[in-house]
Computed example of a mutant assay.
Amino acid sequence: MMLRSRLLNLQIPSVISASQFRRSSTPSLLSVRYPLSHSTIRNSHQHASASMTRNSSVSDTEKTSRTVLFVPPGVEPNEVNDDMILPGSNIVIGPYAGDSKIKEVEFVKSSGRAKDCPKDNRPEFAILGRSNVGKSSLINALVRKKEVALTSKKPGKTQLINHFLVNKSWYIVDLPGYGFAKASEAARMDWSSFTKGYFMNRDTLVAVMLLIDASVPPQKIDLDCANWLGRNDVPITFVFTKCDKMKVGKGKRPDENMRDFQELIRQNYRQYPPWIMTSSVTGLGRDELLLHMSQLRNYWDQ
C-alpha cells in the first residue's frame, strides 16, 4: 500500500504547505461533497476549510490560486510563479519532475481480471475514458509509436486491461472505454466490474488519467466516473482531449466546454484535480503530460 498512501498524501489541499505533507493514509481531496461512507474524509476537508478561514493574512488572489492549482510535494504554495505552471494546465512543476522521455515501450500482457495483471510492483498510470474519447490515439501519441494501442473507428475495441512497459521501469495501462452504447449489456457490466476491481485492488496504481472530450459539452457519464473515483480515493488527472477541434456553427469551442466541465466539477469537489489540455493530432500537451507523470512517478518511486 506504500504507493497508494503516498498518492493520497500528494492530493492534500494545496493550502497546506509542502513541509506538512505526511506519508500516511490521508484522504484524497477528490472526495465529493455529498455524504460519504468515510467520516475521515469529511473531517479532513472540514479541517482544511477551517484552516483557510483562520489564515486571514492570505490574500483573496492567493486563496484562489492555491485552490485551483495542483501543487506537488517539495513546493511551497506561496513560492509558485507563472514559470512553474505547465502551459494549458493547472499543474505546478516541482523538484520531483525529472527525465520524462520515453525511450522504449513494449506490450507485456492483456488481462481479463485485476489479479492477472503483472505483479512486479512497478508504478503504473491507467488511461481511462469514454469510448471514442481518443484514448488509444493519446497513448500512441505519448509513446510516438503507431498502433502501440489498438485504434479503431469502432468504439469499444479495448476489452481487456493492457499493460505497456515504458523504459523497463513503469507502466501505461490501457483500460476498456466506458459508455459504448452498442456493446451488449452483459459486456458493459463485465467491463465495469473488472475495471473497478482493478482500481480497488491495484496497489501500484499511481494515478488515473481520466480522458475528457473537449470537443463536446460535459457528459454525465464522465462526471459519474470522476465522482466514483473520488469517493473511492483513486487520484485522477483530467486529460482534456481533442483540444484542436474548433466547433463551428452552434457548437462550443473546446475551451468553453472545458470551462463548463470544470464548473460542474467545482460544484462537487473542494479543489480541482490536476488537469491538462491535449491533442493527439497536433501534439499539444504531450511533453507537459509526460513531465507531470514523471514527478508523480518519481515521488512514489524514491
Results as ranks from 00 to 15, higher is better:
L3K: 15
L3V: 14
S5Q: 15
R6V: 13
L8C: 08
L8H: 12
V15G: 02
I16R: 12
I16C: 05
S17Y: 12
S19P: 01
Q20P: 00
R23V: 13
T26M: 13
L29G: 11
L30F: 08
V32Y: 10
V32F: 11
R42Q: 05
R42H: 07
N43A: 14
H45I: 11
S51M: 14
M52R: 15
M52F: 05
V58N: 05
S59Y: 02
T64Y: 14
S65G: 00
S65W: 15
F70W: 15
P73N: 09
E76C: 03
P77N: 02
E79Y: 12
D83S: 15
L86A: 10
S89R: 08
S89Y: 13
I91G: 04
A97L: 03
D99M: 04
K101N: 10
V105Q: 14
K109G: 06
S110T: 03
G112K: 14
G112E: 13
G112N: 13
A114F: 10
K119H: 11
D120M: 09
R122V: 06
F125M: 08
A126G: 09
N132C: 03
S136R: 11
L138N: 01
L138M: 14
T151I: 13
S152W: 00
S152N: 01
P155I: 06
P155M: 04
Q159C: 02
L160I: 04
N162H: 05
N162D: 09
N162T: 07
F164A: 09
V166P: 01
K168V: 00
K168N: 12
S169G: 10
S169D: 09
I172W: 14
L175D: 02
P176N: 09
P176M: 10
F180P: 00
K182D: 00
E185S: 07
A186W: 14
W191M: 10
F194M: 09
G197R: 13
G197C: 07
Y198S: 04
F199S: 05
F199Q: 07
D203Y: 13
T204N: 15
A207S: 15
L210A: 06
A214F: 09
S215R: 06
P218K: 08
Q219W: 00
K220Q: 10
N227V: 09
N227D: 04
L229M: 12
R231A: 10
P235R: 05
I236W: 07
F238N: 02
V239Y: 03
D244I: 11
V248Q: 07
K252V: 02
R253H: 13
E256K: 14
E256M: 13
R259G: 05
E263V: 10
E263M: 15
R266K: 13
Q267E: 02
Y269E: 00
Y269W: 13
R270I: 12
R270V: 07
I276E: 03
M277L: 11
S279H: 08
V281T: 11
E288C: 03
L290C: 01
L291Y: 11
M293K: 11
L296W: 14
Q302Y: 10
